[in-house]
Amino acid sequence: MDYFDQSVFLAASTIRLATPLVLAALAGLFAERSGVVDIGLEGKMLAAAFAAAALTAISGSHLLGLAGAIVTSMMLALVHGYATITHRGDQVVSGMAINITVAGLGPTLAEAWFGQAGRISLPPGRGRFMPIELPFAAGVRDIPIVGLVYTDIISGQNLLTYIAVLTIPLAVWVLYCTRFGLRLRAVGENPAAVDTAGISVASLRYRALLMTGLLCGIAGAYLSIAQSEGFTRDMTAGKGYLALAALIFGKWRPVPAVLACLLFAFTDALQARLQGVSLPGIGSVPTQLVQALPYVLTIILLAGFVGRAVAPRAVGKPYVKER
């Protein structure tokens, strides 16, 4: 394969890996801009992945699986809201509790219901979101560069990836051009200002968390019934935390956060590509070292290159009226 083919392959792989990250980062955006820290993105995604796989395996319908994933994730978002908005509990503790509960519950229920050693496998080739061939994809393949980009990168992704792509402008529009978005941006900065403007802080934050649940649900479904064929233990593998890191790296703004997701996904694609490859001048690099690449990059970026990340001022603080 020449360099161009390799780059196309890397780009396509980056997009596939970026899809859940982008969805999760935008999910986190809604929660955190409303002032609620959501470290539970990971747990919500994992629960959604489980629900999607389970429902798809039982019903054979991946659309039903997607719906189940979204409902499950939104329910968990409501649990988080109940703990942190209604009862003003610690947001990190609540999020962590959700993550731990789901991490344990997923394989346990999978074992109890499906008896496949804590996994749920879908029948191969059926019942999941399959790549969609866009029109003319086969026809233009031979046109140099443009053809290959269209056929192998733009075409041939699955429905959920296209949804993720559409979510980006949609999230920007909601945040900056709608009433809900204005209130959201305000409530994460100064909830008292929202309260004195006659708007309920609690209901606004609940609605934001439902958005978070929705997007996490799609991200989770992507993992288990689009990217792979079924649910496995810890299949999110820290993607929720990575998405949170991307959100911070993007300073809680949608487009920079998405770019950060793409960067993380790219390093992930790169490490997969580099495994076992002998690098010129260095020789063979241990697989573990290569696999650590995205995480090392995350730490370096967050520690050094973000500059002053200005979080929404009220993030992490339960809203209590001043006397």
């Binding site: 051009c177 009433r179 978005g181 204005l182 941006r185 305000a186 004195t196 403007a197 006659g198 708007i199």
Partner: peptide, 22 residues
């Protein structure tokens, strides 16, 4: 009771936006 990163106009609108979009 102001939201500092928002503009003056956005602060005015908060709570009386006059529609779903701004």
């Amino acid at each position: 009771m102001l939201v500092e990163p928002l503009t003056v106009l956005e602060n005015m609108l908060l709570g009386s936006e006059g529609g779903v979009t701004l």
